[in-house]
């Protein structure tokens, strides 16, 4: 399970992208997503792809690793592709039928496939893949704790008074910490049940449903137990929401962060302009 789900884990290579402030990376990520949503044609997508390839290369993480991050979602991507094909052009968000000249079209039984539909389906999948890869880049280059610190830093101006940002960041940090812990626990339990003769990979569908129960009950019990232990241990060490607190690693905004953010700020602006002029 863990070797398949590699998204969400930091891969240290010491690149310049790793050294960026998490706030700038999160902002860039948001801007990138906005640009992806706004983009409605191949030229924009090409620009976004080139930029992401540049950033991905700068992380010094092999391209193979990014492809692995895509793997768990390949079926969803296939589904999106087929859905776009069948739903056809004209009723999707990406309406290329008008913009693209009709290169060819073919009819098989009830299905009519046109170049425009194919192009829009490919576009939808590419956008999805780009989004996943970019998110993977963020988590590969930023530790979960830095991520949540970044979110906290970005939320602070929104909640001058009160402890909203801190609560949210603590919640996020604990949730992130729980993901690998629970996955590991689930994996151990799966193995323990396999040792008692219930191997997931050797079962029929009906038995699998039953196995799910043998997995869900211990994992849920375990999650509650962990959560309770964690809160007790936090309180025992004097943790209090809203208490004045210093951080071991200060977030430092350097000029590189400003440039990085500005570069990405251009994307949605550009996409919007192109959209308006078309």
């Amino acid at each position: 399970m863990r070797d398949k789900l590699i998204i969400g884990r930091m891969i240290p290579t010491g690149s310049r992208v790793h050294g960026l402030d998490p706030r700038s990376k999160i902002t860039a990520m948001l801007l990138f997503t906005a640009a992806l949503i706004l983009s409605n044609g191949w030229p924009q997508l090409a620009a976004l792809t080139i930029l992401s390839i540049l950033v991905l290369t700068a992380t010094k993480i092999p391209a193979k690793t990014y492809l692995r991050a895509l793997r768990p979602l390949r079926w969803l991507m296939l589904f999106v592709f087929l859905f776009q094909l069948i739903a056809g052009a004209g009723n999707g968000t990406v309406n290329l039928a008008a913009a693209d000249p009709l290169l060819w079209s073919g009819t098989w039984g009830p299905f009519t496939l046109t170049s425009a539909v194919l192009s829009s389906a490919l576009l939808a999948v590419s956008r999805m893949a780009l989004l996943i890869v970019f998110t993977a880049m963020l988590t590969f280059t930023t530790t979960p704790s830095m991520l949540s610190r970044g979110v906290e830093g970005m939320l602070k101006p929104l909640s001058r008074k009160g402890t909203g940002a801190e609560r949210f960041s603590l919640m996020m940090r604990l949730a992130l910490r729980f993901i690998p812990a629970l996955l590991e626990e689930a994996q151990t339990i799966l193995k323990a049940q396999a040792a008692r003769g219930a191997d997931y990979e050797e079962m029929k569908l009906k038995e699998k449903a039953r196995l799910l129960l043998s997995l869900l009950v211990p994992v849920t019990v375990g999650a509650f137990r962990r959560a309770e232990e964690l809160t007790t241990s936090l309180e025992a060490r004097g943790y209090r929401i809203g208490a004045p607190r210093t951080a071991y690693r200060q977030l430092i905004w350097r000029s590189a962060d400003t440039w990085f953010t500005l570069l990405f700020a251009l994307l949605p602006v550009g996409a919007l302009l192109m959209r308006l002029t078309v």
Partner: peptide, 16 residues
Amino acid sequence: RRRIGLSFQFPEQHLF
């Protein structure tokens, strides 16, 4: 596996 039993660490956590 019928012939080789394995009890993991803290096996009581796997009762369901």
